[in-house]
Amino acid sequence: MRVLVTGAGGQLGRDTVERFAASGHEVVAAGRRELDVTRRDQVLGAVGGIGPDVVVNCAAYTAVDACETDVGRAYQINALAVRHVAEAARRFGAHLCHISTDYVFSGDQSEPYHEWDRPDPRSAYGTSKLAGEHEASGEATVVRTSWLCGRHGSNMVSTVLRLAAEGGPMQFVDDQRGIPSFTADVAAVIERLCADRRPGVYHVTNQGPVSRYEFAREIMAAAGRDPDRVAPIATAELQPPRPAARPANSVLENRALALAGLDLPPDYRVPLRSLVALLLG
């Protein structure tokens, strides 16, 4: 296939480009400098000129707290830009795969969220990403993922390793639960869904619900460091308080993948060990 990846400079975008290329597909990687997805004319020109079979839209405004004070920019990038990409994909016959988030849910329910649960976002980031899902709807694939970690960019694994090396205090909240998602594993599922041109919403995460505090301890253990250096803290005790509400429960069940008979990404501890070894060199 010929594949256009927008937002190709981000951690998921970069691994998505690498995954498609490694499988022998022709890939055009478009970061912000190459393609401004908020510009309709640029998007139509790029998709029309490249003629991709598949467009994977990884472009997003993911600064969760900044979205609370810059709501217009959040909607411009996370919603209106998706309208442009979806329009271009329809016009030129490409299949669209759009990346979304666990933040479309409130986090209030005790059970994991599956694809048919009703979204109820509590932050500007979440509401703008849900709006983007609506713009991509139809024959598009929508991939919701959570707690992304990979070898490119900043994420919780790289942050914990940095704090461990600095030797300072380490506190992580123990009242937010989710599932770490490793970008290489998510990219592999994206490739399969795009190859099949499967429409609809899919939750794509690794397996194993965990709190952020527990995840930090697992990262320390994988690095051969003392997990007891990590202390728990409640979200309400964070100073300064975070502007955007975080879902207390953002565990995503990969129900659609399972029902479709597709392989689920492995337990998060498997790629965690590999990533830590890679980052520590």
Rank of each mutant, 00 (worst) to 15 (best):
Val3Asn: 04
Val5Gln: 06
Val5Asp: 00
Thr6Pro: 01
Ala8Lys: 01
Gly13Ile: 00
Arg14Gly: 09
Asp15Ala: 12
Thr16Gln: 01
Val17Arg: 04
Val17Cys: 08
Ser23Arg: 15
Gly24Glu: 02
His25Asp: 11
Glu26Ala: 13
Val28Lys: 04
Val28Glu: 06
Ala29Arg: 06
Ala30Thr: 06
Gly31Phe: 06
Arg33Phe: 08
Arg33Ala: 13
Leu35Cys: 03
Val37Arg: 08
Val37Ser: 02
Asp41His: 05
Gln42Ala: 13
Gln42Lys: 11
Val43Ser: 04
Leu44Gly: 05
Val47Gln: 06
Pro52Tyr: 01
Val54Gln: 04
Asn57His: 10
Thr62Lys: 01
Val64Gln: 06
Val71Thr: 14
Gly72Lys: 08
Gly72Glu: 13
Ala74Ser: 02
Ala81Asp: 03
Val82Glu: 02
Arg83Val: 09
His84Ile: 05
Ala86Ser: 10
Glu87Leu: 08
Arg91Leu: 14
Arg91Gly: 10
Phe92Ser: 00
Phe92Gln: 05
Ala94Ile: 02
His95Val: 02
His95Asp: 02
His98Val: 04
Thr101Met: 02
Asp102Gly: 07
Gln109Trp: 05
Gln109Tyr: 04
Ser110Val: 12
Trp116Glu: 15
Asp117Thr: 04
Arg118Phe: 01
Arg118Met: 07
Asp120Met: 03
Arg122Leu: 06
Tyr125Leu: 07
Glu135Trp: 09
Glu135Leu: 07
Ala136Lys: 08
Ala136Met: 01
Ser137Ala: 15
Val142Asn: 01
Arg144Val: 09
Thr145His: 06
Ser146Leu: 00
Leu148Asp: 01
Leu148Arg: 01
His152Glu: 14
His152Pro: 02
Asn155Met: 05
Met156Lys: 11
Thr159Asp: 15
Thr159Val: 13
Thr159Gln: 15
Leu161Ala: 00
Arg162Leu: 12
Ala165Phe: 09
Gly167Cys: 01
Gly168Asp: 08
Met170Ala: 08
Asp174Ser: 13
Gln176Thr: 15
Arg177Thr: 15
Ser181Gly: 11
Thr183Ile: 10
Asp185Thr: 11
Ala187Pro: 09
Val189Gln: 12
Ile190Thr: 13
Glu191Gly: 10
Arg192Asp: 15
Asp196Phe: 10
Arg197Gln: 11
Arg198Lys: 14
Val201Ser: 05
Tyr202Phe: 14
Thr205Cys: 12
Gln207Asn: 06
Gln207Ile: 11
Val210Ile: 13
Ser211Trp: 01
Arg212Glu: 03
Glu214Arg: 12
Glu214Met: 10
Glu214Ala: 14
Phe215Trp: 15
Ala216Met: 09
Met220Cys: 13
Ala222Asp: 04
Pro227Asp: 05
Asp228Pro: 09
Asp228Gly: 13
Arg229Ser: 13
Val230Phe: 09
Ala231Gly: 06
Ala234Asp: 12
Thr235Arg: 14
Leu238Lys: 07
Leu238Ile: 14
Gln239Glu: 14
Ala244Pro: 02
Ala245Thr: 13
Ala248Thr: 12
Ser250Pro: 09
Leu257Trp: 02
Leu259Ile: 15
Leu262Arg: 13
Asp267Gly: 12
Asp267Glu: 15
Arg269Ile: 01
Val270Pro: 05
Val270Glu: 14
Pro271Ser: 05
Ala277Phe: 08
Leu279Ala: 05
Leu279Met: 14
